[in-house]
Simulated scan of single mutants.
Amino acid sequence: MKILHVPTEIAGQMQTLVSGLRESGHTVNGYNWFHTYLKYGGGIINTDAYELKNVMEALIRYADLIHFHNGNSFLIHNTDLPILHQIGKKW
C-alpha cells in the first residue's frame, strides 16, 4: 500500500509511523511543512505549504491512503477533504 503522511510533523509522530509502516512492507513518505530545530528525518521530506500545494495533485493520485496530522490537510480550512472524498481517497 502507498501511504502518505502530511503536513505537520510534531514530536516525531510522523517519523515513527513512516518508519514502522516501511518495516511492515508499505511504501510510505511523509511531507512536513512545520519547521523546527529538531530536523526530523527518517522518510520525512521537509517542505513548505507553497511547495506542498504544488505537488498535491500528484501526491493524491499516487497515494492509496493519506494520513493527515494535527488537524491539518493540504489546504487551509480543510477545503480539500470533500474533493478527496468525492474521488474515493481514504484518509
Rank of each mutant, 00 (worst) to 15 (best):
K2Y: 03
I3P: 07
I3F: 03
H5F: 14
V6F: 05
P7G: 00
A11S: 11
A11F: 15
A11R: 13
G12F: 10
G12S: 07
Q15I: 09
Q15K: 12
L17R: 06
L21R: 08
R22H: 02
R22A: 07
E23W: 08
S24L: 15
S24V: 00
G25E: 09
G25V: 02
T27E: 14
T27V: 07
N29G: 08
G30W: 12
N32K: 01
W33K: 11
W33G: 07
F34Y: 15
H35S: 12
H35D: 14
H35N: 12
T36A: 15
L38R: 15
K39F: 09
K39E: 15
Y40E: 13
Y40K: 11
Y40S: 07
G42W: 00
G42M: 03
G43D: 12
G43C: 02
G43A: 05
I45C: 05
I45W: 07
I45V: 14
T47G: 05
A49C: 03
A49H: 09
Y50A: 13
L52S: 09
K53S: 13
N54W: 06
N54P: 00
V55C: 07
V55K: 15
E57P: 02
E57Q: 15
A58V: 12
L59W: 01
I60E: 02
R61S: 10
Y62M: 04
A63K: 04
L65R: 02
I66R: 00
F68P: 02
N70C: 02
S73N: 02
F74K: 03
F74G: 02
F74R: 06
L75V: 10
H77R: 10
H77G: 03
N78R: 15
T79G: 04
D80Y: 02
P82C: 05
P82M: 04
I83Q: 10
I83L: 13
L84T: 04
L84R: 02
L84Q: 03
Q86H: 09
I87Q: 10
G88E: 05
G88R: 13
K89F: 00
W91D: 00
